[in-house]
């Protein structure tokens, strides 16, 4: 288009004329189908269908379009991820959950031989939200992932620690419980007033402090790690976590304790006036695992956990089973 023509196009009269021509050209075929004119006649149709490539292309487009419509009717839309596990759960009317009932208070066998515990109640609350029946399948801890991957169960809810190496094989939920190592102090400790946001801040905070640990435990290991950064931290080992907690409560020379969050909550439940300072020094989040082919279930679990956290159910389970 040369500059001269470009100038002409900006003329309102010319633009109006062009628009009118375009409108007529669009209207023309419609008129022809109605038999008013001869532009789109039977001959044109025969000419079009004489070319097999056009026919095949149209057939493919038709099938594709039908598939899109069908997917919306059957599965809620073509962009909805497929999830055989979630679909099977809906058809079966149940959520099949694997757990090893040998880890109280998360999962255990009660006096009637029934599975009970924090995880059982959590799974029950989630199944109820989905209007599904909960099926509990007892499986040894080391066989849980195999059972999940072979389709024997829909999910694992069994105080399962997050394993970053397994994310190619299973889908994890967000953490619902943090079982990691905490710094624990007496309720009247001046350390409680300290604001600790990052794990790296602990070594400076604990310089010249005396920490109780269970000898050989993960808390002991974290303590030795802190000593590498602050040599003035002193560790006092005890045979059991209960002895360490007792020492913290009764021995004024002990400033704090390094213990896992389950022990902390359990001892608090038994009336120990102790509190945690800052975040977990070594994280150990518990998560729910589902098959890698179950994106819908993964999302439903995430949504359910969020809702159960928001309405206080998770907090209630902690109080019920750990305190």
């Amino acid at each position: 288009m040369d500059p001269e023509q470009r100038i002409k196009i900006h003329d309102p009269q010319i633009l109006k004329l062009a628009a009118q021509q375009l409108f007529e050209s669009v209207q023309a075929p419609r008129n022809n189908i109605n038999g008013n004119n001869s532009l789109f006649t039977r001959n044109t149709l025969l000419q079009f269908t004489a070319n097999p490539i056009r026919v095949i292309a149209c057939a493919i487009l038709a099938v594709f379009g039908a598939a899109i419509i069908a997917s919306f009717v059957v599965g809620g839309g073509i962009f909805t991820p497929t999830d055989p596990t979630w679909r099977a759960m809906q058809q079966r009317g149940s959520w099949r959950v694997g757990m090893d009932p040998s880890f109280p208070p998360f999962e255990l066998l009660d006096e009637h031989g029934q599975m009970a515990g924090y995880d059982v109640e959590l799974a029950r609350a989630m199944a109820a939200r989905w209007n599904l029946r909960l099926e509990l399948v007892p499986i040894g801890f080391d066989s849980l992932l195999d059972a999940l991957q072979t389709g024997q169960i829909d999910s694992i809810v069994s105080a399962l620690p997050y394993d970053p190496r397994a994310t190619q094989n299973v889908r994890y939920s967000p953490p619902y419980f943090e079982a990691g190592i905490r710094l624990v102090v007496r309720a009247d400790s001046p350390l409680l007033s300290q604001s600790i946001v990052e794990v790296e801040q602990f070594s400076a905070l604990l310089a010249n402090q005396r920490l109780a640990v269970e000898w050989g435990s993960a808390g002991d290991m974290v303590g030795r790690r802190l000593q590498q950064a602050a040599a003035t931290i002193e560790l006092q080992p005890f045979s059991t976590p209960e002895e360490a907690v007792s020492a913290l409560l009764t021995d004024a020379s002990i400033d704090a304790l390094l213990v896992d969050n389950i022990t902390l909550l359990t001892m608090q439940g038994q009336g120990a006036a102790i509190s945690a300072v800052g975040p977990a020094l070594e994280a150990n989040p518990y998560v729910i695992a589902s098959p890698i082919t179950a994106p819908v279930l993964q999302q439903e679990i995430a949504d359910a956990l969020q809702a159960l956290s928001a309405d206080g159910t998770l907090q209630g389970l902690t109080i019920q089973w750990l305190r």
Binding site: D100, S102, F103, F141, A159, E214, W215, G216, S217, D220, P237, S239, T240
Partner: peptide, 16 residues
């Protein structure tokens, strides 16, 4: 072994 939930495990201090 000092796993917290394995049925044949001992406490970490016992293991040492």
């Amino acid at each position: 072994n000092d796993h917290p939930r394995w049925t044949r495990a001992v406490r970490p201090g016992q293991r040492i």
